[in-house]
Design a protein around this nucleic acid. Structure first.
Lengths: 191, 191
DNA sequence: TTATAAATTTGACCGTGGTCACTTTTGTCT
DNA sequence: AGACAAAAGTGACCACGGTCAAATTTATAA
């Protein structure tokens, strides 16, 4: 091992990420083109794929980082004492995940890790999210009959399902929130 | 309105569908190429896109039809009297949905309808599936405290989540079934 | 300093999904 | 039968993600 990594490579990666984020801010995730990213970053196309396995990998990084910010912010708040408060706390995350159909698709596609040793940024955030939900469930406590981890996974499943159904028919944001509330009520407060 | 539709068009569509199904049977969903389909069907490329909005629309037709078969078969069986029986009944569907990562992605992407007036074949099958689950829930009955429709939606959400998590880490089929059992047990038999 | 090998970058090239102006076929009306 | 208009089909063309052998840069060792 003579030269394991060069700072030049790190700088190039940063240029690519910054260029991509700028373009996304100006347009959208869906509209992002690899050719535009490399032009803005001032590198050749091949360089992009030396740093990211494919376009999806870049998206995973950027979207995962955004989710991390939102979840960290959510985790700062005190534990919600009822379901409406919980739904309200989740609104920023819901807003981002529903901002573009494309974004939701990327998130769902990467919601599970490809391998134990290689948990991607989005899958990692799902773990964090589930742990947070589990903590909430433990403090209130909802569902003392089952493990907190399981409660968290259930919240996550209903969270995804509510958003997925929202992208379908002509459901407004309000419908999403009320649907999620129904799910959580049935999941967390049976009987 | 002089000539609203021609049987020639219907025949062409059938040729395309048959060619696609043959190629999928020989290779896989993922490996299907539009160019191969049109070559096998003996039509021009443009014809394909006159019949299907895009490649995804063809996949939706074929996968949706397959799901319809499986669900119809599942619906014939008597209502499962406990959760292990329910999981066992779902095995054919699970098997298909996990046969290829690509197939699962297409299904999830189309699990909700784009608009009320245009419910696609996959979204339609989700409706059927949820109704079936609701019927099961009503007959046993699980969760008398909430609407059968809601019980069905919950089963569906956990069904998807169990499969999604299965594609991740190094989980075997057994892990999927036991995970699904845990979910359903917690959802259907609280306390 | 110079030789050397690994790390990094390059850009011409390819595969494949999708478009569209044009041609051919079909069915109806007189 | 012939004229006509809409439906169906065609294939050259484009957009864009991704590849790879070759060129360039970097860091270490002699």
């Amino acid at each position: 091992m003579t030269k394991p990594i060069q700072k030049r490579a790190f700088a190039t990666r940063e240029k690519l990420l910054t260029a991509a984020k700028d373009l996304i801010a100006k347009e959208s995730f869906e509209a992002l083109r690899v050719e535009d990213v490399v032009r803005a970053a001032g590198v050749a196309k091949g360089t992009f794929f030396a740093h990211f396995k494919d376009k999806d990998a870049l998206m995973e990084q950027i979207i995962g980082a955004h989710m991390a910010d939102l979840i960290a912010e959510t985790a700062k708040a005190p534990t919600p004492k009822d379901i409406p408060a919980m739904v309200e706390l989740l609104l920023p995350l819901i807003h981002f995940m529903t901002s573009e159909r494309y974004v939701f698709d990327v998130i769902v596609r990467h919601s599970g890790a490809a391998a134990i040793s290689d948990i991607g940024p989005i899958a990692a955030q799902f773990d964090v999210q589930i742990a947070l939900f589990a903590r909430w469930a433990q403090e209130v406590p909802y569902r003392p009959d089952i493990a907190p981890e399981l409660v968290g996974e259930g919240i996550s499943a209903f969270f995804i399902q509510a958003i997925a159904l929202n992208f379908c028919a002509l459901n407004s944001r309000q419908a999403l929130e009320s649907r999620l509330s129904s799910y959580l009520d049935a999941w967390l407060c049976p009987e």
